[in-house]
């Protein structure tokens, strides 16, 4: 199963638009010594969803739930691309050709000349997406590497 190897557990937190709420999430993670590797905040006028890739998703979820945050896990996969024009295009082109919808994606530029892209697709299309990308010689990062 490609999924068990490449599924990165992303933590999603439902947040009302209230002052200080983000700081409370971040504070809770700090307290538990959790490092955030990448994050993205999707928002509407009244609430937001904070999506994070962290070094220890299970612990992060447990700590957030214990503090009454509405936190959940979602499977995403991580793709490594060269940090130059066309890097992103190569990946989304493959997915488009396969007819796979990207629900959302975000990037993490990192420190080297390579960038990491996180992708969320429908759960039932996860395998197909990963397989298509690997077939096209695109580099996917194993979940264990992402948490490291």
């Amino acid at each position: 199963m490609l999924k068990s190897k490449y599924a990165v557990k992303q933590i999603s937190v439902f947040l009302e638009n209230r002052r200080g709420r983000l700081a409370e999430v971040a504070g809770a993670l700090l307290e538990a010594d959790i490092n955030i590797r990448a994050l993205f905040l999707a928002d509407s006028s009244e609430f937001g969803i904070l999506r994070m890739v962290v070094n220890n998703p299970e612990k992060a979820k447990a700590i957030l739930v214990s503090k009454d945050f509405a936190a959940n896990e979602t499977d995403v996969f991580a793709v490594e691309v060269e940090d130059k024009p066309g890097g992103f295009y190569r990946v989304v082109k493959v997915l488009a050709d396969e007819g796979i919808d990207v629900e959302y994606t975000y990037a993490y530029a990192g420190s080297s000349e390579r960038a990491i892209l996180f992708f969320k697709v429908k759960d039932e299309e996860f395998e197909k997406a990963v397989e298509a990308l690997l077939n096209q010689g695109i580099k996917l990062i194993e979940a264990v590497e992402v948490y490291r």
């Binding site: 999603s12 439902f14 999707a42 509407s44 609430f47 969803i49 959940n72």
Partner: peptide
């Protein structure tokens, strides 16, 4: 919201 049924899509919640 019911956290057990929480999806992480803004669209779904909207």
């Amino acid at each position: 919201v019911d956290e057990r049924l929480l999806t992480d899509g803004v669209g779904t919640l909207e």
